[in-house]
Every structure is written in C-alpha cells, then in structure tokens.
C-alpha cells in the first residue's frame, strides 16, 4: 500500500458574514486507498486533538449519489477526475508532495455557510417553480397504460441522473445553473407524462433561475466537463428549444386559473 504526504490550503470562513482566508495544513500519511473525504477526516481528527476547529464540509452518502459533497480542488469542481464526486475521488490519483487548494463553490446564489459548505437552496427553489409533474397521490393510471419508447426512457434517465450538487454552477464562468435546470426539463419533457406542463415548466424554471441570481449560459461547456454524472450540454439546447416554444405558444390564461 502506497502512502504519501500532501500539503493542503483550505478556505476557512466562520460564516457568511465573516471574511475568509486560506489556511495551510499537512496531511502526512495519506493512503492510496483513502477517499478524498477520508483524507480530510484524518486531517480533522488531528485538528480536533490539537483543540482546533475542524474543517467543515458537506457530505452524507459518500457514494456519489446524494449530491451533498462538493468543493473545488485546485480550481476544478470535485477535483481532477472526470465523472466523479469528491467523495468518490480516491487518493491513488495523487502524488507525494502535491499541494492542493480547497475552496467552496463560488457563486452569488450559493452563500457560504462555513468553510467549504455552501447554501444551495436556490436549486430547490428552481424545482419548486416547476420541476415536477402535477399528479396528486392517487390520481395515476396503470403504469403500463402509456408505453414509453425505450430510447426516450433512457435519454430521460440520462438527465434524471443529476444529483443537484451544484458543480456545474461552481465551474461556470457565468455561474449559470443552465445544466441543472435543463436536466430537469429534459428528464420530464422526454416522457409522455411530462407533456401537459412542458412549456409552463420551461418558462417558470428559467424565470426562477434568473430570480436566484444565476448567470446566463454562453455555451462555455465547463459544466459538462465537471458534472459528476456527465450530463451533456445537449440538454441545454433542448431547454432553450422548450423555452422558445413556450414563449411563442404562451397562453396567458394558464397562470391565472379559472374564474369560477
């Protein structure tokens, strides 16, 4: 088993209100079998033993699926390995003596909570604006009543794989949430069940993303490169088409409800 040493420069910030700075730490005994977060666990145990405040970072499943973890490693969201969340990034990809700079997601829409942990509730509000199919419990037809072509189901699943981690926003020079938003619009819009609200959904979700202060997409493509689920930017094109369609076909009644 290979073990080696790293130097970490970690962004420390007590809360959104405080200023932040980089602090330097040594990780002297890193095993190649550790995950990145396990490496930080060990650093934190040492900090606690010395009576210092451990580095705060978000994480939960440590399996790359909950979307809770995420920070920048040397300027790259979730670190250097493609298609991988930082909790699934293993230390065998690093070399002895490397210096690593760890920073939180940077975006006006993601205020810092502490150190590497940020507030991503803006993403939830984009979903609340229209990222759903309105089907109250109990009102569904039989699961096989509507056949769904396999290719559509598969493509829909490609988009639905989004874990909502926010890496796309963090990496985008415009801090745009286009990949995130388009993944939901693509997931639901590719299924027959998602058709009735397809236009409304695009309008409302895009509008909410603007309200939250996310930037516009200028097709830089950094988001796709760091997405741990490798969701392609073709979904952004799909979203733009739904959005345009919606603007052209907008039925102003839809929002106001009936008069009776």
């Amino acid at each position: 088993m290979r073990t080696f040493a790293l130097t970490l420069h970690v962004w420390r910030q007590k809360s959104a209100k405080d200023g932040g700075r980089f602090a330097e730490y040594k990780a002297p005994n890193v095993s190649e079998h550790m995950s990145f977060l396990e490496m930080l666990d060990v650093v934190n145990q040492d900090l606690i033993a010395k009576g210092d405040d451990p580095i705060a970072f978000d994480h939960d499943c440590r399996e790359g699926i909950c979307g809770m973890c995420g920070f920048m490693v040397n300027g790259s969201a979730h670190g250097p390995h493609r298609g991988t969340t930082v909790c699934q990034l293993h230390m065998r990809h690093f070399q002895d003596g490397e210096e690593l700079w760890l920073e939180p997601w940077r975006s006006a829409a993601f205020p810092i909570v502490k150190d590497l942990a940020v507030d991503r509730s803006a993403l939830d509000r984009i979903i609340a604006a229209g990222g759903f199919i309105s089907v109250p419990t109990g009102s569904a037809v039989d699961g096989n009543a509507t056949p769904v072509p396999k290719v559509d189901a598969e493509l829909s699943m490609d988009a639905a794989a989004c874990i909502g981690c926010g890496a796309c926003v963090a990496m985008c020079p415009n801090a745009s949430a286009a990949l995130f938003t388009s993944a939901k619009i693509g997931h639901l819009g590719l299924l027959p069940q998602g058709q009735p609200e397809r236009h409304d959904r695009a309008l409302k979700m895009v509008a909410q993303a603007n309200v939250e202060g996310f930037g516009h997409c200028t097709s830089v493509g950094e988001c796709e490169a760091v997405c741990p689920k490798q969701i392609p930017i073709t979904f952004i094109a799909r979203m733009n088409r739904d959005f345009l369609d919606a603007v052209i076909h907008e039925r102003p009644q839809s929002d106001r409800g009936g008069s009776g």
């Binding site: 109990g138 009102s139 569904a140 039989d142």
Partner: peptide, 22 residues
C-alpha cells in the same frame, strides 16, 4: 401496485422494454 402507477405518473424513468412497457 398503486406505488408503481404513482411513480410512473410522476415521471420516474423506470427501465423499459423495446415495446415501451416496464
């Protein structure tokens, strides 16, 4: 059985056969 119906209606992209069935 109701659960599957509900989830399909919500847009859960379950695996499908070529004919479009679950």
């Amino acid at each position: 059985v109701n659960i599957i119906d509900q989830c399909v209606a919500q847009g859960v992209p379950f695996a499908r056969e070529y004919g479009g069935t679950l």
